Computed example of a mutant assay.
Amino acid sequence: MSVNLIKRDLQYIKSSVKDSSFKQKKAIIDLILADVIQDISEMEISFEVTYTGQNEKKHYETFAKRYKKYKAKLLVDMQELQHRLNRKTVNEAACIRMLDEMIATDLYVVYTNELINRFVPKHYRYEQETVTFC
């Protein structure tokens, strides 16, 4: 599943939390959250990465670790959201805040892109490559 479809599902959950209809749609939302968690665990993202030579790609490992960190954070936050929505009394503001952060940061991919964009090659001759992290 793509990032846009996951974001669409999160928008649906957010709208049902906002209008307080999530209790009537509890079964559907639980199913959507379970599906989203499964899709996130299998998700792969491609990034445009700059390098100066074939032997100078050690920074890829840093980018991969950063992506794995935020992917794990996203999984934990999704499970936390599922737990919060299944409580007897739901803190709607906290759920909306969590959903807003996930949607605004493209499922935390923005944080990895910021790190990649901070990398400045030492040489004026460099190339770009598309790398997929999972």
Rank of each mutant, 00 (worst) to 15 (best):
A94L: 09
L33Y: 01
Q79G: 06
N91L: 02
T132F: 02
Y126L: 01
D77S: 12
D35Y: 12
V76K: 13
V76Y: 10
E44I: 03
L115C: 04
E44D: 11
L115R: 10
M102L: 11
S20P: 01
L75H: 04
S41W: 12
H123I: 00
Q24L: 07
H123E: 09
L75E: 14
D106T: 04
C95S: 13
S21L: 05
L99R: 04
I103A: 03
N55T: 08
R84A: 13
I32Y: 01
R118N: 08
K69F: 13
E114K: 09
L33F: 02
L31N: 15
K7Q: 13
A72V: 07
I6S: 00
K88I: 04
R84P: 06
T52Q: 09
F47D: 04
L99V: 12
L74I: 07
Y126G: 02
Y108L: 08
Y51W: 05
V109P: 01
I40G: 00
N86R: 15
T50R: 15
E127Y: 13
V49E: 12
Y60T: 07
K65W: 06
K71Y: 00
V17I: 15
D35F: 11
V17Y: 08
S16R: 12
I29L: 06
I40C: 00
L99P: 01
E42A: 06
H83G: 02
A93L: 06
E92C: 01
K73V: 10
Q79L: 09
F63T: 12
S20G: 06
M78Y: 10
V110H: 10
M1Y: 08
M78D: 11
L85T: 01
D30I: 05
L115P: 04
Y124A: 09
V3I: 06
A27S: 09
R118F: 02
D106M: 01
L74G: 00
A64E: 13
K68Q: 07
L10D: 14
R8H: 10
Y70N: 13
V3P: 00
C95H: 05
P121A: 09
K71C: 02
T105I: 03
M102A: 08
Y51N: 05
Y51H: 10
D19I: 06
A94T: 04
L33Q: 00
D9L: 08
M78P: 04
S46I: 01
K23N: 14
S41M: 14
E129H: 07
L5P: 03
Y51G: 05
N113P: 02
T132Q: 06
H83V: 00
V76P: 00
K69I: 03
Q54G: 05
C95K: 01
D77H: 08
A34W: 03
Q128L: 07
Q24P: 00
I45T: 12
Y12G: 05
D100H: 03
M78Q: 09
V3T: 10
T52Y: 02
T52D: 10
S2T: 13
K69N: 12
N86V: 15
N86P: 07
M78L: 15
M43Q: 11
N91T: 02
L33I: 14
C134T: 15
